[in-house]
Design a binder for these strands. Structure first.
Lengths: 333, 333
DNA sequence: GCCATATTTGCAACCGGTTGCAAAATTGAA
DNA sequence: TTCAATTTTGCAACCGGTTGCAAATATGGC
């Protein structure tokens, strides 16, 4: 069986505390003792049990990584960055998939059992209630890609979706379009609402621009294609350009347009949001708004780590600026 | 602070064992007792600490989910399926990112600390040594998307990559091509080697077919594009059709071809492998070999679960059949 | 070499649970 | 009602560690 602290102590002929101390840094152990213990540990193939020690220290070094975005390729990158960042700090991500989950309490229960030190909710579509539920359960929480509010209840790291909406509007106006539309993600997502707000208010500031909008069922290729198909078959005419909820949605819309024989950007202009890896693939070549994923992730990690020291840290919102990336789905100016 | 077993026992006026028993199913507790305890627990907001109980039971219900594929969109689907499948069985995935990790021992250490009940290595590019290292450390392990060998050391669930290579060859031959090529993933990956073997042996069975091959640096868009660009600029002529290591690689190659003004499938045919979601997007529309991801995942989960009961289960290889999906990158017959 | 001070070590209690065993309570047949 | 068989309950030891405290040892100044 696996060697335990006691086995090592016995073999080294020292007390259990001595063994424990050699494996916790900052503890006082003489060089001679350390040598004896390490020798015995090596011989027995001993490795300390992190879970057992968590009982007394109250620290598990487990971080709940909570998401429901398992269909948007950008989240693979998000998971990559999170797992690596956490690992580098000696933390381990416990992945929780909240697809189809609607009850925040239930998700808290799932995570609390494992007494994680903290939780990162990584989702732009999950209700803020989830993050709030963790906070109320006394678990340090950071909501990545969440909504920024002026008085946040929990830490939020992400982008200013309202501003992104404005940027998209300005970009389309700069292209000379006078008849534009918002093709949003699911209406219930805060990110959709905010992008809508920003887009429409900015358009309203310019006179003589026609504005329409509609919403897709999800942030997914199929939803984008379906919604654009619907727009194409309706009796209503098409806008000149669309600001789509995100990149996959945009690609879906693009697909529907191409199928309908429309040329992009000659007949219709498109701009997305995220700048996922795919977006720069030449056979996709999407104009989009770049979201600084890696800054958001590393800032989220920093924040959750700082909360381990200081659990009642005053909630803050950290927003990172985005920028427009001009590619093939908008006309060259 | 969080309520513990003792608090509940005190409040309910019963022994700690009684409380413990009400929360472990199969234990003998009278209805009256259960009621008393549950009431007290509810009032205190008590939830058992899974990690503490794992100390005595020896079960953590933690499963290490180990991968290094964080750039292939298909793995987002893989993670989705794994996390949901594990959650449904009351297990929690501990995600480990082995990108850039070369030392199996180190990864074992990372996971062992948390005394996971089992490990799933989900990768087609990770050396079999990793899975083996876990086995040797006495941790139940399943290698998903791993190489099938006739005498496997560890459980392997996946596809027969050699057979896939043959299928691709037969498909290209059926299209009437007489000059074909293998554009593989990284040469060190077992999946690449096996696909190569299958492809070349099948081609060899047909006379008069010219065969070439080369390898990309990774299973990624960039690698595919770079390798295809290299082939296009070289003084050597092009093959009529390419079997590419996987779908992202194929899309990269497609991108390079389009940039060079080649028409697909008129000038060059392409077939990939995986049938990722992207592949059926109309603006990509990839011919490919479908890999039954969801069967592979659920079978892997079943296997790892069964090993929890029976750790020394005799290693087996579970292979699932693939099928060709004909789309736009090959000519219609 | 002596003594005050600083460092290292071991004891024992504790973290939040589980479990074998025996005592207590319940059941039911006579 | 009595007593044997069965079920429920509590005691106490244990899982694999950590840590405050006091005893033991080492260090250094004179």
């Amino acid at each position: 069986m696996k060697a335990t602290l006691k086995d090592v102590a016995l073999r080294a002929g020292v007390s259990r505390s001595a063994v424990s101390r050699t494996f916790t840094d900052g503890a006082s152990v003489s060089a001679k003792m350390r040598q004896k213990v390490e020798r015995a540990a090596r011989e027995l193939g001993y490795h300390p049990n992190a879970l057992a020690s968590s009982l007394t220290t109250g620290r598990t070094k487990l971080i709940g990584l909570i998401s429901n975005n398992f269909h948007n390729p950008i989240f693979l990158q998000v998971f990559d960055l999170f797992t690596r960042g956490l690992q580098e700090r000696g933390l381990r991500p416990l992945l929780v998939n909240l697809t189809d989950e609607t009850d925040p309490e239930k998700s808290v229960r799932m995570v609390r059992q494992y007494s994680v030190d903290g939780v990162i909710v990584a989702s732009s579509t999950l209700s803020p209630d989830f993050a709030k539920a963790f906070k109320e359960a006394g678990i340090p929480v950071v909501h990545s890609f969440g909504r920024h509010t002026t008085s946040p209840k929990v830490h939020v790291v992400g982008i200013d979706n309202v501003e992104c909406g404005r940027m998209a509007a300005r970009e389309l106006i700069a292209c000379g379009y006078t008849d534009v539309a918002f093709l949003g993600g699911p209406e219930s997502a805060t990110s959709t609402q905010d992008r809508y707000t920003g887009f429409t208010t900015e358009i309203a500031r310019h006179s003589g621009i026609k504005l329409r909008y509609s919403f897709a069922k999800a942030y997914s290729f199929d939803a984008g294609r379906d919604e654009m198909s619907r727009l194409l078959t309706g009796e209503n005419t098409m806008a000149q350009a669309y600001f789509c909820g995100d990149d996959v949605l945009t690609i879906g819309a693009l697909s529907a347009l191409q199928r309908a024989g429309k040329k992009v950007p000659d007949d219709v202009g498109l701009i997305g949001l995220n700048d996922m890896e795919l977006a720069r693939w030449e056979n996709i070549d999407l104009s989009t708004i770049h979201q600084p994923i890696s800054q958001i992730v590393s800032s989220s990690i920093e924040l959750v780590v700082s909360m381990l020291e200081e659990p009642d840290r005053y909630p803050e919102a950290r927003l990172f600026p985005c920028r427009v990336v001009r590619r093939g789905t908008l006309p060259r100016v």
